[in-house]
Design a protein around this nucleic acid. Sequence first.
DNA 1: TACATATTTGGCAATATAACCAAATAATGA
DNA 2: TCATTATTTGGTTATATTGCCAAATATGTA
Lengths: 100, 100
Amino acid sequence: MDDKARVILDEKAKVLKALGHPTRLFIVEELARGERCVCELVKLVGADFSTVSKHLTLLKNAGVVQDDKRGQMVYYTLRVPCILRFMDCIESVIVSGSCK
Amino acid sequence: MDDKARVILDEKAKVLKALGHPTRLFIVEELARGERCVCELVKLVGADFSTVSKHLTLLKNAGVVQDDKRGQMVYYTLRVPCILRFMDCIESVIVSGSCK
DNA sequence: TACATATTTGGCAATATAACCAAATAATGA
DNA sequence: TCATTATTTGGTTATATTGCCAAATATGTA
């Protein structure tokens, strides 16, 4: 494997790893319904403000979400909606273990 | 969130987490080309036999691959090919940050 | 049986993650 | 300016992950 392929592999793994945590996956699925400020996500997740903020930073660094500060609030949106189409496949893994 | 939704969320995160490691992602992409025995994967990955074996066990527990022992060799196959279609999307995250 | 090969398992050390609290920063309104 | 709200950052601790080595297990062959 050459350097370039290695970098791409690492980047892809980074995205998947970012999605591979229940709280972060929950956030992504919630953002699929529209933009949310951090305070809304904190309420929904039920964890500390700092915890949610760090999860969002990680998702942002992986390229999954983007933020937009308006006033005192920071709104997050899903940057790559195609990720959601993946979820049907992932669910098929846990339900039947097979997919088309 | 109710109990059932929580379990599903955890399971989905588990699958994504399993894919979220460069070596395991490499293995998955290699298995996409056909079944491979552990020894072949060891050569390709370039890590210890035990290391590769543990990655495979983790992928199996997540439901991503399945194994088939024939003689002394254990052959692994991808259980959910739809995962591969996801990769285009993941690549679009790292390239442009957007996808259809 | 003895030996070689393929694989898994157990154990350990290094590193990475996750969650909380407290403090820092930034924007708003009195 | 001062206080309040929203968010991030730093620090700490507990837990989880990763990778290697050595040992155990299983199968095939002489």
